[in-house]
Design a binder for these strands. Structure first.
Lengths: 180, 180
DNA sequence: GCCGTCATGTAAGCGGTTACATGATTGA
DNA sequence: TCAATCATGTAACCGCTTACATGACGGC
């Protein structure tokens, strides 16, 4: 099962959706740890339909055609067996960390600016996650809220780490200034 | 400048290396936030050489040929301008989080197992990062140690979050058992 | 009338992985 | 002598992004 298929089946288990709606949901939620584009979603939806994992119902409202997909029992089964499969990938491509890793090649002031930009990036994501949290009705339950909680907490930790690192770097920098 | 080029130039600024050695260094360090394969490194090394960003010296020791690359002044410049460029990407593809996100489709006991596997995965990375930390001589300085510190701290936070989440889930589960 | 959103798709191209091919050297 | 490691590369393939194409509907 392809990676898009997982996202699609996962989205459909929460209720029937069109390809467009799936993309919207992904952009509002899983995008933070798993993105998907139209170029993946539509062809995969077709393949999943042919494989019998989803069903599509043409619901043209007026002249506008629209296909709403539902997950089938075998689709649920496929999702379930993926969820239980212990083999789980984890790869990150974090350009901010890569820059930080090579920051010894910079002047202290430039490196400090790098840390600040890194912080700003995490803060921005944190803000967006908090905005999502605000629109979720209480009481918050279920794993979607749990994952949101993870995202918020993890990014809070990262912002705090940046602050601490910045503090240490400025202290070291000032020390060097004085001894000059 | 391609993403592999950044890794290569960053590796070479720490000292001349062969393609093989670059790959080794990547696998031991940046792999955690930026991987690179031979299929990327060798062709890119050639392009960088043609562009004048690196220099290659044939140092055949015995019958074994070996090309050691060094970064040139224009290579340093390119690396520097990339480091200062505020445009910095950040994307993660975390299958563990994706599974957790859809875990409402599982039985409570299955979901709990999922959280435990998620924890184990983070713990494994944490162990590997700590192993790296142990072999780094003290005093630890420079941004490579700072980034390692980030990785360790971030994964510690994640493991702790898993423990807390597991605790909450078992508590809720037991409550449901009792009320049955 | 036009802009924004809803809605469905396709094609080109890129970045990256995987598998394979080759061969020398070292040490058990 | 045989396995592991050193060392350099290539070719096929795959997943994904980007850009593009099309067109209906609703509101200003």
């Amino acid at each position: 099962m392809s990676s898009v298929a997982r996202v699609i089946l996962g989205a459909l288990v929460l209720g029937p959706k069109s390809g467009y709606e799936i993309k919207q949901m992904v952009d509002r939620s899983t995008r933070f740890f798993w993105a998907a584009s139209y170029g993946q979603i539509y062809p995969e939806l077709r393949r999943l339909r042919e494989a019998g994992l989803v069903e599509g119902e043409e619901t043209a409202s007026g002249g506008r055609r629209r296909v709403v997909f539902s997950i089938t029992p075998s689709g649920r089964e496929a999702l379930h067996s993926w969820l239980l499969d212990p083999e789980t990938g984890y790869e990150s491509r974090d350009e901010g960390l890569l820059k930080l890793f090579f920051a010894d090649a910079l002047e202290p002031a430039e490196a400090l600016a790098l840390v600040r930009r890194f912080r700003a990036q995490r803060q921005e994501i944190l803000d967006r996650l908090r905005a999502i949290e605000r629109i979720i009705p209480k009481p918050r339950e279920g794993f979607r809220s749990i994952v949101l909680d993870f995202g918020i907490g993890c990014h809070e930790w990262q912002v705090a780490w940046c602050d601490e690192t910045e503090r240490r770097l400025t202290a070291a920098h000032e020390l060097a200034e004085v001894s000059r």
